[in-house]
Design a protein around this nucleic acid. Structure first.
Lengths: 234, 234
DNA sequence: ATTACGATGATTGTATACGATTTCGTATCT
DNA sequence: AGATACGAAATCGTATACAATCATCGTAAT
């Protein structure tokens, strides 16, 4: 798609560059630390450097790349603590988004989420982490996408994007966590179904993500753990 | 090495443009809806349009401006619900930042915050909203700046910036709220001093901001209130 | 009087050109 | 041999030029 001739480029080259570069970062093609050379990107995209620069600026503002004057841009996220910080931030904003979304959730939403969780359970047998991760995102999407506050929703999306970028480069799958996760999902659904107070829903959603983080930390080296002065797991 | 002499620009024009435009938005010189014309900005800054474009892209990514292809950029935040969304988002991230920061806070930090709050109390008599607002930011800054998670801290800063931009254009001061606020500040300090669980601190910090939002809503029109499907005040 | 339509001006989108800065290899000196 | 100074290549920063697009307004036809 996106016929480049067509006389009318419906989207600007700047936008194309932004989308393309971001996709490669999230997709893992550009791993953290990768140096983004403007001329090379421009040649790759078939445009001049000006649109590429604008795309880089946007990505810079979203913390996908770091930029240094007269030196250039590199893909952000070299720091191993980046994953921890991102997970913690997401636990907070996603918890809030899920809680705010809960009063607006319908029975069919719940059913849809439960069906997705069933598929995840099946994934546990025929080991398929990629599909599992995709379903996981779908599941949580059902729970938080109704959030009426667009700012918070935006923060959640950015967190997921960032996480995906980090995962595709430096993340190690935590064995055994997957089955726990499926069980926690069902618990989360029951809490929401029961019409529990929003603070309970928020706490549960936050704890669910914090558990994943804890599982990751339990497998990491003590040096890494020492770098995490947070302990927000309640 | 690389002694930068005064003649050469130590920071790029792109950065200058970004800082200048952002300052004018936050300062209220560019009110929401204001149309940002590239050539005019460039002339004002004494540079060409290219650096201005890059600055606009960054501001776009930070949601300070909205951008439409072939039309241009306008200062964001026309929507009156913007204030509500921003306050709610800030209540969540600032609450989390304050809670995460609390275990690292020293006695002198507390004393400093208390001194600032004293100055705020004095401001109540000789009515000075500008100074009051500045002190308010200082006060909360002491409480959340120790937050070890840079992502969350960044979100808090962005929220405050956004709030400042909205306030300087469309915000009406809520009379009577100021004295309540000072009292709540003291309560917050006591909770932190007492070494209460982090969840209590988070709840208190969040409730403090939610109270300001509630006070605002109580004075607003029913139509505005109807647009707020959130009710996160626990 | 109203509406459709086309010309005109304003503004954005992108390419190219060139100066400025950094980086890195290499030769020279101690 | 190691350190340092120098120069060349790579890359970034910005200005300018021009094409593409959109908004506005005047005019003519109904």
């Amino acid at each position: 798609m996106t016929a480049r001739n067509a006389g009318s480029p419906s989207i600007s080259k700047s936008e194309q560059a932004y989308t393309a570069i971001k996709a490669k970062i999230i997709g893992g093609e550009f791993t953290p630390g990768y140096r983004l050379v403007l001329a090379a990107l421009a040649a790759d995209l078939g445009c001049s450097v000006v649109p590429v620069r604008e795309a880089i600026r946007r990505l810079e503002a979203e913390n996908f790349v770091t930029f240094e004057r007269n030196v250039g841009a590199t893909v952000a996220g070299i720091d191993p603590t980046e994953y921890l910080y991102t997970m913690q931030t997401l636990s907070i904003v996603e918890g809030a988004a899920t809680a705010l979304s809960a009063p607006l959730i319908t029975g069919s939403d719940i059913a849809r989420a439960r069906a997705i969780n069933e598929q995840m359970r099946e994934c546990l047998n025929n080991f398929d982490p990629v599909r599992f991760t995709a379903l996981n995102q779908q599941f949580h999407g059902v729970l938080f996408e109704n959030c009426p506050n667009p700012h918070i929703l935006d923060l959640v999306h950015r967190g997921w994007n960032r996480l995906q970028a980090l995962r595709s480069s430096t993340f190690s799958y935590v064995p055994g966590r997957a089955s726990e996760s499926v069980a926690e999902h069902e618990g989360l659904l029951q809490i929401i179904e029961s019409g529990a107070p929003v603070e309970d829903i928020e706490r549960a959603a936050r704890a669910h993500r914090a558990s994943t983080l804890d599982a990751y930390l339990a497998r990491s080296t003590p040096e890494q753990q020492a770098q995490v002065p947070l302990a927000f797991s309640y």
